[in-house]
Amino acid sequence: MSGQLDMIILLFVIISGIGAITVRDLLGAAILFGAYSFLMCLLWAIMGAVDVAFTEASVGAGVSTVLFVAAVFRTTRRTKD
């Protein structure tokens, strides 16, 4: 059971990772990167690393997304690739 859940979440992690680097809008990339971090946190919780998952949920999906959005707000949303 947990093996299949692993695989499904891994698939979503890879999809959101590819999405974060291909989408042509930096705000969208920031939000997709937050989703990537949160899915990664779910994966670590399944692997039994509860402390690491907790840290990633608060740091990766929380603060680093906010920092990214702040930086996009202070620069530009435009990107060529």
């Binding site: 509860v50 998952a53 840290t55 603060v63």
Partner: peptide, 21 residues
């Protein structure tokens, strides 16, 4: 329980950031 200085510190910081936003 899972947690400690790093996680708690980030949560406290996030509450101030939420206030600022």
């Amino acid at each position: 329980s899972p947690g400690g200085g790093f996680q708690g510190g980030v949560i406290l910081g996030a509450s101030v950031i939420l206030y600022a936003i």
